[in-house]
């Protein structure tokens, strides 16, 4: 029950972006990548104390393969309670490839279980009429599609009722669909479901698009931090 050593472990929440080539890195691979990066950065990080000690790293909300992320969250624990947080960001950035950038380190305020929503920008290469089609599509009463459950089978859901908010805007040759969708452990809607459904409805033309998760919100629609 008593330990000679007294650990003051400090939890640190790291915020980073994942863009360009890094969007092809899956969640599992990001996990492995981060254990290497914290080693490379020589952070005084807490290791698990099992048979194969490894840096203790957790992620708030996995990002699907192919998405860019502007507000990605990773939690670590450091051994030195007095380590300046800003230094951690600099150390990590100095060893990271350009497509993964850390922009903040904070002490966590909310628990991961409080995550309720995420915001997304879906940018289409526009040829002039994708905006109109999107409006038509999202304007429907119901958008019924099949979602895979954890058991591996499919169930029908109506995405329309899941969309908390949306906005469609055209800038130059691009059309941007912004969305707020449920996220987290209770209910999670991948915007890819919506896009696949959209292309099912309008299968005459195909527009390239990129999906960016722009933020993570709590259950009260406030920024998760």
């Amino acid at each position: 029950m008593f330990s000679e050593r007294v650990f003051v472990l400090k939890s640190v929440r790291l915020l980073f972006t994942k863009s360009a080539r890094a969007r092809f890195v899956s969640h599992l691979d990001i996990n492995r990548f981060m254990t290497r990066i914290v080693r490379k950065a020589k952070l005084d990080i807490w290791y698990t104390e099992g048979f194969n000690p490894h840096p203790y790293i957790t992620f708030a909300l996995p990002l699907p393969l192919g998405f860019e992320g502007k507000y990605e969250i990773m939690d670590i624990r450091i051994n030195d309670d007095n380590a300046p947080l800003g230094e951690i960001v600099d150390k990590l950035n100095s060893v990271c490839p350009p497509d993964i950038r850390f922009f903040d380190a904070v002490e966590p305020i909310k628990k991961v279980g409080e995550i309720g929503y995420a915001t997304y920008d879906i940018v289409f290469d526009d040829n002039g009429n994708v905006a109109q089609k999107l409006k038509e599509f999202i304007g429907k009463d119901k958008i019924v599609t099949k979602k895979r459950t954890k058991k591996g089978d499919y169930k029908e859901i109506d995405i329309k009722e899941k969309i908390k908010a949306f906005d469609i805007g055209v800038v130059g040759n691009e059309t941007k669909l912004s969305l707020v969708l449920p996220a987290g452990s209770d209910d999670n809607i991948n915007p890819a479901l919506l896009i696949d459904s959209f292309y099912n409805d309008f299968n005459d033309e195909y527009y390239c698009y990129t999906v960016t998760r722009t933020s993570i919100l709590d259950k009260n629609m406030e920024k998760f931090i």
Partner: peptide, 25 residues
């Protein structure tokens, strides 16, 4: 690049072709 990357997402393990790894030159 956009079209290329869109195609990458249609195959298994796009990380095989995406590049951008640590220490790549």
């Amino acid at each position: 690049n956009k079209r290329f990357e869109q195609l990458l997402l249609s195959v298994q393990k796009p990380g095989r072709y995406s590049g951008g790894e640590i220490n790549s030159v």
